[in-house]
Design a protein around this nucleic acid. Structure first.
Length: 516
RNA sequence: GGCCCCUUAGCCAAGUGGUAAGGCAGUGGAUUGCAAAUCCGCCAUUCCCCGGUUCGAAUCCGGGAGGGGCCUCCA
């Protein structure tokens, strides 16, 4: 049975709905003022996987991710760049969407923009004032935390103590130190495109009210899952929860899920989260120059989502990419080589194999066991790290099956091993799909722009080399100088290709090549 | 100062009361003309330290050390 860790109760709970029912999920999206870095992808990848698994179990999931396209940082950054807030937001939103696409995050049903919901925010703020939870002061509107009895329940925080030791800016208009802005009065000099009229004067919405309104508008007053990064717990989610429940009187979210943050370690060994303010970011676009989106996704899913993801020490001068991602690339190559093998044997591409997206039960015993173990891990609070281990074991099983069955081509698929291989490959695809993997051709087979030419030249080289090998093998004995000379030539060709990043593999059925 | 969390092999990382998954690296073998790939082995008597509970603890409790997140914008 599916269990999910709920930040609100601080324990694992049985999932509150039954297969067949609709699950609503809201995840806080980005403020679109800078290109996305790897850390921004953790939440989307995890919740995309959550949706895929829930779908696999038979739930129907509706998932919303907001885009914050008006805010202080956007105003500051667009002024710096000499552009407008909408133009900058548009550009960075496109960057974000492209990153999601590269990481195969396909499950988001709606991306509402904050600026499309100003009316709803004004209504909710008015409602909160009418109910006595909020008050206008100095052109802004504040939420009164002292009026909300259970304020602080998500983070176990006492509003009375918030002033002490904290770094809350004193504001003469606030009644309590912990009060936060629902509506921010326009400051002089702010561009008109970030100013809206309201009953309390011109201004723009506070950050927290956006999510309350967009989730309520698109998913209803009570949602099933609210997700986001651990750094958003306070104040953002706490405030969102307070506003929403004060306004509706209903439970805002049944389950709160928080993903761990991506961390980089400095050379001194100190760990830091990846953040623009610290300057230690790795942009998605830059990472994609060195590894595929599949590898990045696999890397993220290797760790349980509640744990911080350790990028380790990264020496930018030396390595194009952190060694932890490089290790993930090497590990993932196991699956890519199996995909190549699948293609050699069956003649069809593994990533194009159509596998069920719902749980199927008709696998024979040795395979069913892999499926059950995979599900067991996923049922335990989406333990993707444990689940990937099962994928590796299944890959190993498939290679073993192909070895013992001597599977080389499509004719061999009728044998008992051939049948198991075919079904096992289907299961691997089925389970990989849940993690959002195996959707693209292995990078090692990519030919690039001059694909036909490169492929042709490679075949030419391979044919010439194999002529030499055949000549050499005709010469009897081991130490014949002529034989040695021929093999020296074939080895030189392989060596020089390796220096170009191309690996030749001599198999009983012929020579294949791939990128390292 | 307050609130939360983490510490498992050289590295990454599952495991949440029944005797340590998986990956990277390393290493021995099968296979190969040699490689590569693949397969079969080996690689933590022990889970930061010290106490306690228990027939039994990496797992629960107490204390200590180290690290992290939040309390300000942050995925």
């Amino acid at each position: 049975m599916l269990q999910v860790y709920n930040t609100l109760t601080r324990r694992k709970e049985p999932f509150p709905k039954q297969p067949g029912e609709t699950v609503t999920m809201y995840v806080c999206g980005p403020t679109v003022y800078k290109p996305s870095h790897i850390g921004h992808m953790v939440g989307p990848v995890i919740f995309d996987t959550v949706k895929r698994y829930l779908t696999y179990l038979g739930f129907s999931v509706r998932w919303v991710v907001n885009i914050t396209d008006v805010d202080d940082k956007l105003i500051a950054r667009s002024a710096e760049l000499g552009t407008t807030v909408p133009a900058l937001a548009q550009r960075m939103t496109e960057d974000y969407f492209e990153c999601l696409k590269q990481l195969n995050v396909t499950g988001v049903d709606a991306f509402p923009r904050a600026t499309e919901h100003i009316g709803g925010m004004i209504r909710m703020i008015g409602h909160l004032i009418a109910k006595g939870y909020a008050y206008p002061a100095g052109g802004s509107v504040w939420f009164d935390v002292s009026k909300d009895e259970d304020y602080g329940k998500l983070c176990n925080r006492d509003p009375e103590q918030m002033a002490e030791g904290g770094r809350i800016e004193p504001n003469p208009h606030k009644r309590n130190p912990g009060d936060f802005a629902l509506w921010k009065g326009a400051k002089p000099g702010e561009p008109p495109e970030v100013t809206w009229e309201s009953p309390w004067g011109p201004g723009r919405p506070g950050w927290h009210i956006e999510c309350s309104v967009m989730s309520t508008t698109l998913l209803g007053e009570t949602i099933d899952i609210h997700g986001g990064g651990l750094d958003l717990k306070f104040p953002h989610h706490e405030n969102e929860l307070a506003q929403s429940e004060s306004a509706t009187g209903k439970t805002f979210a049944r389950i709160w899920m928080h993903n761990g943050l991506l961390k980089l370690r400095s050379k001194e060994g100190k760990e830091d989260k990846m953040a623009g303010s610290i300057g230690n970011v790795l942009n998605v676009a830059d990472a994609l120059k060195h590894v595929s989106g599949e590898v990045l996704r696999f890397f993220i899913l290797n760790t349980h989502y509640t744990s911080p993801i350790d990028l380790g020490v990264w020496d930018r001068e030396k390595d194009p990419i952190p060694t932890s991602i490089e290790a993930a690339r090497k590990a993932y190559a196991t699956f890519e080589r199996l995909a190549e093998r699948y293609q050699r044997i069956t003649g069809t591409a593994f990533h194009e194999l159509k596998a069920p997206t719902r749980a199927s039960t008709d696998y024979p015993p040795p395979l069913r066991d892999f499926q059950q173990r995979f599900r067991h891990h996923m049922d335990d609070d989406f333990n993707t790290g444990g689940a990937t281990a099962v994928l590796f074991e299944l890959a190993s099983f498939l290679n073993r099956t192909a070895d013992t069955g001597k599977l080389e081509s499509a004719q061999d698929l009728d044998s008992p091993e051939g049948q198991v291989f075919r079904q096992g490959a289907m299961l691997l695809k089925e389970l990989g799909q849940i993690l959002g993997l195996f959707w693209s051709a292995p990078a090692s087979l990519a030919l690039g722009a001059d694909g036909q030419l490169v492929g042709g030249l490679m075949q030419l080289l391979i044919d010439l080399r194999n002529n030499l090998r055949a000549e050499a093998k005709k010469i009897p004995g081991k130490d014949d100088p002529a034989k040695k000379a021929l093999f020296a030539q074939t080895d030189l060709i392989r060596q020089r290709l390796a220096e170009l990043g191309i690996v030749l593999e001599d198999r009983p059925t012929g020579t294949t090549w791939r990128r390292a």
